[in-house]
Design a protein around this nucleic acid. Structure first.
Lengths: 231, 231
DNA sequence: AATGAAACATGTTTTATATCAATTTTCAGC
DNA sequence: GCTGAAAATTGATATAAAACATGTTTCATT
């Protein structure tokens, strides 16, 4: 994974977000100004629920979880995201705080953009606004389907969904070297670590997946999708 | 409840949505054109998940539930909403279908606005866009907190949250004549009707609420809030 | 007022999953 | 390669809530 150079500007950035492609050079300069670039280590907090959301945080490379913190350490992971995601968009034009905490699952490089500059650009460039709304809506729809999954499916359906999500959306491959611990997976599926372990065992026995150390391969996607649908 | 007259136009509408207040007269005329007004009876489907979202649906009066339909009748209620809500905003600039089904809990009057006209207005009027984004985000944040509630709280916490939501956001009173059946409440809390019944009994015995037929009164808000927080 | 059907309540049993406890595996650091 | 700690697995038990079963209330219709 090539670590982006500091000298890269928004204008010549090759890992540009889809929305930002709508901006012309002068508009790119507007967000370039005051832009910050930071690299987080595995496990580090990128933004903290309740803190002032002065910036929107663009994930340039890496892999993060966004979660809501409740009392007594009761957290719920809203989503896992990788490069291209914009953290904090949900604070635009509303209460100016982060509504969730973001933590890096692995080394993650981000760009910070001033929230006010961003909202000014929204006024200048309607197609930028349209792209941002499209993106917000995409995220919302995904959170709806997660709500459905976690309330209506039981353990195997929940794990099936998470494995398919990791394969399709995050790693984009049927075989992937999982950066997540069992504890992370348990958090994602909202299961205890022990229960998760049992479902994984079941999936292995049923030849749905092949587990080799940290590597997981989806060996029977069709059936896994069926379990996800009906479980 | 006064039923709005058909002769009312967007320009002189008194029950105007917050966002629409950002529009000037000529812009209001743009959405007025092709506007439809429909009244739904209790239990009727206002929009159906998967159908083409050609319009955004403004709730003028009434009370609805939005839910995702899964297989085998497994549904999850995303939210309950009343007058002022815009159904279908989540389909703006994305896949042009409704992502959820909306059903009237009681007689509900809506205005339908052409989705394309609306997205054109977004390009013309930046503060309108800002208000819409603010609203989308508000809904998203609420769905996050619902996700938290349903996955991290148990029965009493879930019921406490729904009762407080009904009191605060929907009926705006500590005492309200509940239009919902036990089955509706069970759906909202994601409990079986029987379990719900037992939690209600418990709340009555603990003098948290007073139930008289269809009327519910929150008699100990403080303690109910505590149960909601920690349950 | 009588009747029947929903809606609601309540007692019992079952079940999925959490929790607790113990063991095995993995892996970093010496 | 050895060692200890953390991670992961496996088995036994506990528990919250579902499912089932039955009884009771409510309410619309005659």
């Amino acid at each position: 994974m090539p670590i982006p150079e500091k000298s890269v500007t928004c204008k010549n950035c090759l890992t540009k977000s889809e929305c930002f492609k709508e901006l012309n050079d002068s508009q790119l300069e507007m967000i370039e100004e005051g832009r910050l670039e930071v690299t987080f280590n595995k496990g580090e907090v990128i933004c903290k629920q309740g803190m002032l959301a002065s910036h929107v945080i663009y994930i340039r490379s890496g892999f993060v979880k966004l979660y809501i913190e409740g009392n007594n350490g009761k957290n719920i992971i809203l989503t896992i995201e990788k490069d291209g995601y914009l953290i904090g968009l949900q604070s635009l034009f509303g209460k100016n705080i982060f509504h969730y905490t973001a933590v890096a699952y692995e080394e993650t490089t981000v760009c910070l953009f001033d929230m006010t500059a961003l909202s000014n650009l929204l006024e200048l460039n309607a197609s930028f606004a349209a792209k941002l709304i499209a993106r917000l809506n995409e995220n919302t729809i995904r959170s709806y389907s997660r709500l459905f999954c976690l309330t209506q499916k039981q353990s195997s359906g929940r794990l099936a969904e998470i494995l398919l999500c990791l394969s399709n959306r995050i790693y984009e491959s049927p075989r992937f070297n999982l950066a997540l611990s069992r504890k992370d997976l348990a958090e994602l599926t909202v299961l205890s670590v022990e229960s998760l372990s049992r479902v994984i065992k079941e999936f292995k026995e049923d030849k749905l997946i092949i587990v080799d150390g940290k590597t997981i391969e989806i060996s029977d996607r069709k059936r896994l999708e069926m379990i996800c649908e009906n479980g």
